[in-house]
């Protein structure tokens, strides 16, 4: 159990960092939409629409790393499985 929790914590931390990096390493807050600007040629106004897109921010990263830390911490409460020698 101890080892499983530690592996899970490591996986969570690594996945969170990879996802954060892959989506542009946004150093702001997490966003669920991104602005898309298009130019109206007659008026010259830049129209702003929002496209649904998940952009994890530092809050996402922090929460995932905290979760990984909690899992690793909980794992310390489990004892390492000891093998008993039958002889």
């Amino acid at each position: 159990m101890k080892r499983r929790l530690q592996i899970l914590a490591l996986l969570l931390a690594v996945t969170a960092v990879l996802v954060w990096l892959a989506t542009g390493a946004n150093r702001g807050w997490t966003k669920t939409s991104v602005p898309v600007k298009t130019l109206d040629e007659v008026t010259g106004i830049e129209a702003i629409a929002y496209r649904q897109q998940f952009v994890p921010g530092v809050d996402f990263l922090g929460l995932a790393l905290l979760g990984a830390g909690v899992l690793a911490g909980v794992s310390l409460f489990f004892r390492k499985k000891t093998t008993t020698n039958p002889s």
Binding site: R27, G28, W29, P35, D40, T43, I45, E46, A47, I48, V58
Partner: peptide
Amino acid sequence: PKGVNNAVFKLDATLESINGS
């Protein structure tokens, strides 16, 4: 009818400015 009209607002805040429209 084309929905291009917009009002953009911005105010500074911790970590990053609050930008919206």
